[in-house]
Simulated scan of single mutants.
Amino acid sequence: MRVVMLGAPGSGKGTQAKQLVQTYGVPQLSTGDLLRAAVKAASPVGLRAKAAMDAGKLVSDDIVLGLIEERLDGPQGLRDFILDGFPRNLAQAEALGALLNRLGLPLQAAILIDVSAEELKRRIAGRRTCRDCGAIYNVYTAPSATEGVCDLCDGETFQRSDDNETTVAQRLATYEAETAPLIGYYRERGLLHSVPGEQPVEAIFAALRAIVDGLA
Score class of each variant (00 low, 15 high):
Glu94Pro: 08
Ile68Leu: 12
Glu156Ser: 12
Pro44Ser: 03
Pro27Met: 08
Gln108Ile: 05
Arg88Pro: 04
Gly12Ala: 00
Glu69Ser: 11
Val39Glu: 00
Gly32Val: 04
Ile211Trp: 10
Ala173His: 05
Met5Glu: 07
Leu100Glu: 11
Pro196Met: 11
Gly126Pro: 05
Gly77Arg: 11
Phe86Ser: 05
Gly85Met: 03
Ala210Glu: 15
Asp213Gly: 11
Gly134Pro: 04
Ala117Leu: 13
Val212Thr: 04
Ala216Arg: 14
Cys130Arg: 08
Leu192Thr: 00
Glu119Met: 10
Cys130Gly: 10
Ala49Asp: 00
Arg131Ser: 15
Ala109Arg: 13
Leu103Gly: 11
Glu94Phe: 13
Ala173Lys: 08
Gln92Thr: 05
Ala52Cys: 13
Ile211Tyr: 08
Glu178Gly: 06
Asn164Ala: 01
Glu118Tyr: 08
Asp61Arg: 12
Val59Ser: 01
Ala135Cys: 07
Pro87Val: 12
Val26Pro: 06
Ala41Thr: 02
Ala55Pro: 09
Gly104Ile: 01
Ala37Ser: 05
Gln108Val: 13
Ile204Pro: 04
Ile113Leu: 04
Cys150Leu: 07
Ala98Met: 12
Leu208Glu: 10
Ile82Phe: 07
Gln22Ile: 10
Ala52Tyr: 13
Gly134Val: 02
Gln159Arg: 03
Asp213Leu: 10
Arg128Tyr: 07
Ser11Phe: 07
Gly10Val: 00
Ala98Leu: 14
Gly214Gln: 10
Ile124Val: 10
Ile136Met: 13
Ala177Asp: 11
Gln170Thr: 02
Ala38Trp: 05
Leu78Arg: 09
Ala42Ser: 13
Leu107Glu: 02
Asp62Phe: 01
Asp33Ala: 07
Val21Tyr: 12
Gly25His: 02
Gln19Glu: 08
Thr141Lys: 13
